[in-house]
C-alpha cells in the first residue's frame, strides 16, 4: 500500500498514544476493581499513591507541551507527537485521576485540583473538536482570499457604491454613506464568537427594497403609486420623465443593488471567518490559565498530603 504523504496528529504513529492511553486506562480500572483496601478506596493506599503519582506525572508532561512547542530549534520528539500524546494521555487522565480520588470529594483543595483538572480536560475536548471540524470550514469560506484581501475588497465595494450613488440622488448617496458607516466587522469577544449585532440590517433591507421598487418603477415607465412606502415615494417623486435618463438611472440602481448584495455577502463571510477563528482559539484562553491554576492546586494538594499525613 502506498503510504500517505502525511498524517495528522490524531493518527500520529498509527495511533501510538491512543493505544498507550487505552492500556493505561484498562490497567488502572483492572487494579481498582481487584484492589480492596480495608478503609475503602482512597488516595492513601498503594494504588492511590500509584495512580496519584502517574496522574501528577501526566499533568506535568501535558503542561510541558507549552514549552516544547516553543522550542523551535527542536528537542525531544516531534511537536506533532507531543500533541498526539497530549490529546490521548490527557483523556486517559480522566480515568487515572478519578480512580485516584477513590470518589472521596469535599470542599477542599484536593477536590479543587480534581475539578480544575476536569475543566481543563473538558476545554481540551472542545479543542479537539474545534481542530478537527473548523479548519476546512475556514478554507471553504475564504475561497483562496486572505482576510486582508477580503477587507480590501470590501473597501473597494464601498468606494464603488459611493461612486455609483453619486450619480443618483443625494438621498440615496446619504443612505449608502450611512450604511457603510453601519457595517460591523468583528467586535468584542461575544461579537467575534457569535457574530456582531447588526444595527444596519433593517436599514439595509429597507434600502434594498427602496432601490428595487425604484428600478422597477423606472423600467415600467410609471410613477409610483401614492400608497407606496414613504421613502420610495420620496425618491420616486423626483423622477424626471425622460426615457433615456430613466434607463440610465435604472442601470445605476441595478449596479448599486449588485454592489450592495456582494458587499452583504462579503461582510457575512468576513464575520464568519472571524467567528471560526475565534471559536478555534477561544478555548485556549481557558485551557492555559486553568492549567496554571491546576498546577498550583496540584502543588498545594501534594504538599498538604505529605504535611498532614
Amino acid at each position: 500500500m502506498e503510504t500517505p504523504a502525511h498524517v495528522g496528529f490524531l493518527r500520529h504513529h498509527r495511533y501510538r498514544y491512543l493505544k498507550i492511553g487505552l492500556i493505561l486506562c484498562a490497567l488502572s480500572l483492572l487494579l481498582y476493581a481487584i484492589h480492596d483496601p480495608v478503609d475503602g478506596p482512597n488516595g492513601g493506599t498503594w494504588l492511590g499513591y500509584g495512580l496519584g503519582s502517574i496522574g501528577a506525572g501526566l499533568i506535568l508532561m501535558l503542561s510541558w507541551l507549552g514549552i516544547r512547542k516553543r522550542r523551535y530549534r527542536g528537542g525531544l520528539g516531534q511537536v506533532k507527537g507531543w500533541l498526539s500524546a497530549h490529546v490521548y494521555l490527557g483523556l486517559a487522565l480522566v480515568i487515572v485521576g478519578t480512580l485516584h480520588t477513590g470518589f472521596q470529594f469535599g470542599w477542599n483543595v484536593h477536590t479543587l485540583a480534581y475539578v480544575l483538572m476536569l475543566v481543563v480536560i473538558t476545554s481540551g475536548v472542545y479543542g479537539i473538536w474545534a481542530y478537527a471540524a473548523l479548519p476546512e470550514r475556514i478554507t471553504a469560506l475564504r475561497r483562496g482570499q486572505t482576510r486582508d484581501a477580503m477587507l480590501a475588497e470590501m473597501a473597494e465595494l464601498n468606494r464603488q457604491s459611493i461612486a455609483v450613488a453619486q450619480a443618483l440622488s443625494s438621498d440615496i448617496h446619504r443612505a449608502i454613506a450611512r450604511s457603510i458607516g453601519r457595517v460591523r466587522i468583528g467586535g468584542g469577544v461575544i461579537a467575534q464568537l457569535f457574530g456582531p449585532a447588526e444595527p444596519a440590517r433593517q436599514e439595509f433591507d429597507d434600502l434594498n427594497r427602496t432601490l428595487n421598487v425604484r428600478a422597477d418603477t423606472l423600467m415600467a415607465g410609471q410613477r409610483a403609486e401614492s400608497e407606496a412606502e414613504s421613502t420610495v415615494m420620496f425618491i420616486a417623486g423626483q423622477i424626471v420623465k425622460r426615457a433615456g435618463r430613466d434607463e440610465d438611472e435604472a442601470a445605476h440602481i441595478r449596479q448599486l443593488l449588485d454592489i450592495l448584495g456582494r458587499r452583504k455577502e462579503l461582510v457575512w463571510r468576513i464575520n464568519q471567518d472571524i467567528q471560526l477563528h475565534g471559536r478555534m482559539q477561544i478555548w485556549l484562553y481557558l485551557h492555559v490559565p486553568l492549567t496554571l491554576a491546576l498546577l498550583a492546586a496540584l502543588l498545594t494538594h501534594v504538599i498538604s498530603v505529605f504535611l498532614y499525613w
Partner: peptide, 27 residues
C-alpha cells in the same frame, strides 16, 4: 514542518507531487 503541531505542513519535491495529488490527505 517540525513545529507544526497538527502535521499540516509538509515539504515535498516534484517527484512526490503525484503522491500528494493522490487524495491521501489523511487527517
Amino acid at each position: 514542518v517540525r513545529a507544526c503541531p497538527t502535521g499540516a505542513a509538509l515539504r515535498v519535491s516534484p517527484e512526490k507531487f503525484l503522491k500528494v495529488s493522490h487524495g491521501r490527505w489523511e487527517s
